[in-house]
Simulated assay, not measured.
Amino acid sequence: MTNSKLRPAVFLDRDGTINEQMGYINHLSRFMLLPGAAQAVRRLNEEGIPAVVVTNQSGLARGYFPPSLLEAVHAEMERLLAAEGARLDGIYVCPHHPEAKVAEHRMACRCRKPLPGLLEQAAAELHLDLARSFMVGDRWSDLECGIQAGAAPVLVLTGYGRGELEFVGPQKKNQPVLIAENLSEAAERIIQLLRHERSGQRRPCLLQRIKN
């Protein structure tokens, strides 16, 4: 497929970006959408921009919860999003960890963020243009994953975001192109940028805060 037929997408970290950062979600009752997250995904849907979750879930590898719980959590996420008129175009999970308790997940893989394997897999399967896409997350590992894949990195200040910005970011060479209070603001700014691009204009400088 030629690049002209590939679509830009918004890749979304899960914990701390779409739902409350709760550490390991080892029970369905611990999964709660962040305010505005469903509306943000719906806005991407309305604009025809694929919204794809990419998430590390080493709790599987560590034996903290079974695959059936992860499936239930993602079914609940999709149910809650659907109740607000939103849908995901894909959910991609890395279940691996080099020191996993569960043998089948014990490996140094390419899909564990900050490595770009999940984005590359999604791009191949969903016909996405990584160079025109965005990676949104609350941790620098999300941003570095996007950069390695060729996508623009966006930091949200939900979840670990504020602490990452204050204590991790200053030591990092790679920086986000956008910093947003939450997923809603990130989605709106990304939509503006992609509309600008579709109009035939060059993408403007991205390095700016949406809010202080």
Rank of each mutant, 00 (worst) to 15 (best):
Y92F: 14
V10K: 01
Q148K: 12
Q21W: 05
E76Q: 15
G137R: 00
L155N: 01
G63P: 09
E76A: 15
R162S: 14
E185H: 15
V52T: 07
L12C: 00
A82V: 11
L157R: 03
H105A: 08
R189D: 04
D129T: 13
T2F: 09
D142Y: 03
G169D: 14
L119T: 03
R30L: 07
E120N: 13
A152Y: 13
S4E: 10
L70I: 08
A51N: 11
A72S: 13
N45V: 01
V102R: 15
E181R: 11
E99R: 05
C111S: 13
A38G: 15
V177N: 05
A75Y: 11
V102N: 09
G161M: 00
P170Y: 12
G161S: 01
R43H: 14
Q39A: 11
Q201W: 04
N19H: 06
G85M: 12
C205V: 15
V52P: 00
P98Y: 05
V41G: 08
M1Y: 11
Y24E: 04
P67F: 03
L115N: 11
E46Q: 02
T17C: 06
L81V: 07
L206F: 05
E144N: 04
R162V: 15
W140C: 02
L60P: 01
P116I: 09
R162E: 05
N19S: 09
A180W: 01
L193F: 13
N212V: 06
P170I: 02
P95E: 11
C109K: 14
S199F: 06
R87S: 14
F134Y: 04
I190M: 12
G169N: 02
D89K: 09
L130W: 02
D89E: 10
L165W: 09
P153N: 00
C145L: 04
L119G: 02
G161A: 05
E164A: 06
R209Q: 04
N26R: 06
E144R: 02
R87Q: 03
Q201N: 04
E120F: 03
L12E: 00
L119Q: 12
A82G: 13
M135G: 12
P8G: 05
V53C: 08
G63L: 00
A108F: 09
G117Q: 03
Y92E: 13
N3P: 02
F65P: 00
R42Q: 14
M1S: 07
G16D: 00
A37V: 01
G117W: 11
L194Q: 13
H127A: 07
E78I: 10
S184I: 06
M135Y: 10
R14K: 09
M107W: 09
R43Q: 06
H96T: 06
K113L: 14
D13T: 15
L178V: 04
I191K: 03
Y64T: 01
K211D: 08
L69G: 01
R198F: 13
E20W: 13
K172A: 08
E120T: 14
A86F: 08
A122G: 03
E84P: 02
V102H: 10
T158G: 07
E166V: 13
Y24T: 10
E197P: 05
E20D: 14
L126Q: 01
A180E: 00
A186F: 02
L44D: 15
M32V: 09
Q21T: 07
K113M: 14
Q175S: 01
V93F: 12
L155K: 00
N174Y: 14
R189C: 12
V156R: 01
E144A: 10
Q57C: 05
Q21S: 10
L69S: 01
F167C: 12
V54D: 00
R189V: 12
Q208L: 03
